[in-house]
Design a protein around this nucleic acid. Structure first.
Length: 418
DNA sequence: TCATATT
């Protein structure tokens, strides 16, 4: 690509797993990289210094990255310099800290999802310790100690974590579970904040759609598209949609590379510490966009969207695609589904209104009996809205359908009695 | 009373 394409072939240390990148603030703008290097080398081994410069003017922005060959050396630099000395011309003492995402990377921290609620730390540890030494393990729990069905896990080395990730993610089913575990690299602090911001934003979204159903489906542009970094698929679900469509929906799945795990060139002169490779899929073929009179106030819908940036390097062994989520506003959460309905029946009931990408009725893991709720994803918000409009007041499987308003997700509802 | 979740 045009800019930033210079890689440093000479330095073999900067892509090393062991290397640690530190961010340094309060650096006088006139200082050179050589001067900085000389200064830090008094305290620790430093392989490289990169001044962070303005994209256009190339002037120093008053901060830099330094790369140390090991965590030990990095810690020496931090301990010796952070808040310890004020350089000439700086207003406050030097700031020396781990660069964004660095700590998470170094801790080899994994997120584990799709855990049965009754699984304990000990059981989880049993499973994962076959891949290496577990330094820390923690199942996330709610207020009454009830498991949230996910956990964090730290390994001693990256190799161990990666082995576990690749072997378990999307493949291993725990006792009594019908879905495989999800194993991903844990979010960085920054990703966490982004996630939280997105959540609160969608919850704060006022519900202004009220009177004009015809305008329903107009969505704000620039909403982060949904994305599942991982995938599983219920057996038979693929029958709902042609394969070629599945392939086309998520063209990005194949080329995901986590920005946190050093790939060659990931360091290059990087002045982009504010937005390191955010890798949203850009757009879906036939997604929202265009054809919409933006006349109505945007923000009428705020889809429940989970956006995952980190990659599952294995891609869950490629197989069989994933639970396909449609674009924002195209995913229906449906409850009070008649007990006898399965994925197929649910899809059948809803496929008249648009291209159904996926459908899923949740079932009790032990008994296999329907929990009477599920998801249907369309390829467009208008199809979803179409479904709501058409299903409203209809009868299906002896149940009356009713459309309800939820604050931030369009929903169709199978009412059992009223 | 509703869900594939991120310390």
């Amino acid at each position: 690509m045009a800019e930033g394409g210079k890689e440093r072939k000479s330095s073999s240390s900067n892509n090393n797993e062991e290397s640690v990148k530190l961010f340094v603030g309060q650096v006088p703008k006139q200082m050179t990289e050589d001067q900085l290097l000389a200064m830090f080398e008094e305290f620790a081994v430093v392989d490289e210094v990169n001044i962070i410069k303005d994209k256009t003017t190339r002037a120093s922005r008053g901060c830099c990255f330094i790369i140390c060959p090991s965590r030990h050396e990095a810690d020496k630099a931090v301990n010796a310099c952070h808040n310890k000395k004020t350089l000439p011309g700086a207003s406050s003492p030097l700031q020396v800290k781990y660069a964004d995402g660095e700590l998470e990377r170094l801790e080899h921290k994994l997120f584990v999802g799709m855990l049965p609620k009754n699984v304990s730390e000990a059981e989880l540890s049993d499973l994962f310790s076959t891949y290496g030494v577990i330094k820390d393990i923690q199942i996330l729990r709610g207020s009454q100690q009830t498991s949230k069905g996910c956990a964090f896990l730290k390994y001693e080395t990256k190799e161990q974590a990666l082995a576990a990730l690749e072997d378990i993610n999307g493949k291993y089913k725990m006792e009594g579970s019908s879905v495989p575990l999800v194993v991903k690299w844990a979010d960085t602090e920054k990703e966490r904040q982004a996630r939280r911001a997105q959540k609160t934003q969608s919850q704060a979204m006022p519900n202004t759609n009220s009177q004009h159903p015809s305008l329903f489906g107009a969505l704000p542009m620039g909403y982060p598209p949904p994305y599942n970094g991982y995938a599983y698929q219920a057996p038979g679900a693929y029958e709902l949609v042609p394969y070629h469509l599945r392939g086309g929906i998520r063209p990005d799945l194949s080329l995901n590379i986590s920005p946190r795990h050093y790939a060659p060139g990931s360091y290059m002169g990087s002045a982009y510490h504010t937005m390191p490779g955010l890798q949203y899929p850009i757009a879906y073929p036939g997604a929202i966009m265009s054809h919409r009179p933006l006349s109505s106030s945007p923000g009428t819908l705020s889809p429940t969207v989970l956006s995952c940036n980190s990659a599952t390097s294995s891609g869950a062994s490629g197989s069989s695609g994933g639970q396909v989520e449609g674009p924002p506003g195209a995913n229906l959460f449906i409850y009070h589904i008649p007990q006898e309905f399965g994925d197929q029946e649910l899809a059948n009931a809803f496929q008249a209104f648009g291209q159904v990408l996926s459908s899923k009725v949740f079932v009790d893991k032990a008994t296999g009996v329907s929990k009477c709720f599920g998801f249907v994803s369309y390829d467009s918000p208008s199809a979803a809205q179409n479904a709501i409009t058409m299903m409203n007041g209809c009868q299906l499987g002896g149940k009356k359908l009713k459309d309800i308003e939820l604050p931030y997700e369009t929903s169709a509802c199978f009412m059992t009695s009223a």
